Amino acid sequence: MISFLWAEDENRLIGKDNQLPWRLPADLKYFKETTMGHPIVMGRKTYESIGKPLPGRTNIVLTRNPSFKVDGCEVLHSKADFLSWAKKTDEEIFVIGGAEIYRLFIDEVDQLYVTKIFEQFEGDEYFPKINWENWQLVSKKPGIKDEKNPYDYEFRKYVRK
């Protein structure tokens, strides 16, 4: 099963200069709790923004660069390579970005985990448009706004209809 996990603002913004445009520790905690123990898939630029393999998860980096190698990560070079790899596991696999990788797997994804932040930020990367008629909201949980998490936000989960 392939799942997407991301946070976005009201305009589908997900990134600025290869970083998150906001500081929301509760979302980072949610990300860690949700993906722990599961394979995660990311593009090279997302990997470089994180800077290291995330512990407790199989880290897969997707890149067209055949010479790209990184300790602690499995490196794949095409959509076909990833789909072949994914068929060998029963685990839920989380695609964690960036925008180009989400676009690449938009037709294969089974579940969506989105942190919706009810603010508008400046940035340069947007989540691809989704036909929401194909998705059913199965859970929605409001986030707690406090001094460390200064925005209104909620955690949503969707399954493909």
Score class of each variant (00 low, 15 high):
residue 5 L to A: 10
residue 18 N to P: 00
residue 6 W to Q: 03
residue 70 V to P: 04
residue 45 K to D: 00
residue 59 N to F: 10
residue 87 K to S: 15
residue 66 P to W: 00
residue 37 G to Y: 09
residue 5 L to V: 14
residue 42 M to K: 01
residue 79 K to E: 15
residue 9 D to V: 05
residue 3 S to V: 05
residue 45 K to N: 12
residue 72 G to A: 10
residue 36 M to V: 09
residue 35 T to N: 12
residue 69 K to I: 06
residue 46 T to D: 03
residue 65 N to K: 14
residue 46 T to L: 06
residue 30 Y to W: 14
residue 57 R to T: 11
residue 16 K to W: 11
residue 43 G to Y: 01
residue 40 I to C: 11
residue 30 Y to T: 00
residue 76 L to C: 06
residue 55 P to I: 09
residue 44 R to S: 08
residue 68 F to R: 09
residue 26 A to Y: 03
residue 33 E to N: 14
residue 59 N to Y: 10
residue 7 A to P: 00
residue 5 L to Q: 08
residue 4 F to A: 09
residue 32 K to E: 15
residue 59 N to E: 08
residue 83 L to M: 14
residue 37 G to R: 09
residue 68 F to C: 07
residue 18 N to Y: 09
residue 56 G to P: 08
residue 66 P to E: 09
residue 77 H to Q: 13
residue 4 F to T: 01
residue 80 A to D: 15
residue 86 A to M: 12
residue 87 K to L: 13
residue 54 L to Q: 05
residue 57 R to G: 07
residue 62 L to D: 12
residue 13 L to F: 05
residue 65 N to W: 04
residue 8 E to R: 04
residue 61 V to P: 07
residue 71 D to L: 10
residue 11 N to T: 14
residue 42 M to G: 08
residue 85 W to L: 07
residue 21 P to H: 10
residue 69 K to T: 13
residue 25 P to H: 03
residue 23 R to H: 15
residue 88 K to F: 08
residue 51 G to L: 03
residue 77 H to G: 14
residue 2 I to C: 04
residue 41 V to C: 13
residue 31 F to N: 02
residue 13 L to Q: 02
residue 26 A to K: 13
residue 37 G to L: 10
residue 53 P to E: 09
residue 83 L to Y: 04
residue 60 I to F: 06
residue 88 K to V: 05
residue 52 K to Q: 13
residue 6 W to M: 06
residue 55 P to K: 14
residue 2 I to L: 15
residue 23 R to I: 11
residue 52 K to I: 00
residue 15 G to R: 02
residue 87 K to E: 15
residue 52 K to W: 00
residue 7 A to W: 04
residue 40 I to R: 11
residue 26 A to I: 12
residue 21 P to W: 07
residue 37 G to K: 06
residue 6 W to R: 09
residue 17 D to T: 07
residue 3 S to I: 08
residue 38 H to G: 04
residue 30 Y to H: 15
residue 29 K to Q: 13
residue 45 K to Q: 12
residue 54 L to E: 08
residue 60 I to T: 02
residue 8 E to F: 00
residue 9 D to T: 03
residue 38 H to E: 04
residue 59 N to W: 11
residue 81 D to V: 06
residue 41 V to G: 12
residue 46 T to C: 07
residue 69 K to S: 14
residue 26 A to N: 12
residue 76 L to W: 07
residue 72 G to Y: 10
residue 45 K to P: 00
residue 29 K to A: 11
residue 9 D to Q: 03
residue 9 D to W: 06
residue 70 V to H: 13
residue 56 G to S: 11
residue 25 P to M: 08
residue 71 D to A: 15
residue 31 F to A: 03
residue 12 R to W: 10
residue 6 W to E: 01
residue 28 L to E: 01
residue 25 P to R: 06
residue 15 G to I: 00
residue 14 I to A: 02
residue 8 E to M: 11
residue 56 G to F: 13
residue 64 R to W: 10
residue 44 R to M: 05
residue 34 T to F: 03
residue 31 F to H: 03
residue 86 A to E: 15
residue 15 G to K: 04
residue 77 H to L: 11
residue 33 E to K: 15
residue 26 A to Q: 14
residue 12 R to C: 07
residue 11 N to Q: 14
residue 20 L to Y: 08
residue 33 E to V: 07
residue 4 F to G: 02
residue 81 D to M: 06
residue 31 F to G: 00
